[in-house]
Amino acid sequence: MSEAQNFIENAVKTNDVVLFMKGTKDFPQCGFSGLATQILNYLNIDYTDVNVLENEEVREGIKAYSDWPTIPQVYIKGEFIGGADILRDMFETGEIRSVLDAKGIAYSVAEQ
């Protein structure tokens, strides 16, 4: 297994929630990555961000790993959940909360 694949495997398996993205959670560098961070931040989820722009091998390797052609990619407890579209749909329908509950991931929503 290449170094990038080892890195990916480790990141996905050892973090409850990991977001492979362009940029960082504080400075997303692409609209779709930004959308994913907004949703995870809004839900106050503790997640690890991986900036694929810093490593071309990881950027391509993650697409092969999940058979998914784009970034960002969200993993929860080692399972590929989806990209920005799917995360947005799940957020809007409330499905994301049942997935988080089922996987025992803490989240909270600030009361307006």
């Binding site: 052609p69 990209g83 799940m90």
Partner: peptide, 24 residues
């Protein structure tokens, strides 16, 4: 949903993420 989207991406034969930057 992931499998549904993967079906569409396969239909686009590798254009997705390449020449086709953003397809929601």
């Amino acid at each position: 949903r992931v499998s549904q989207h993967q079906l569409v991406y396969k239909a686009l034969k590798g254009k997705m993420g390449g020449v086709l930057h953003a397809l929601s």
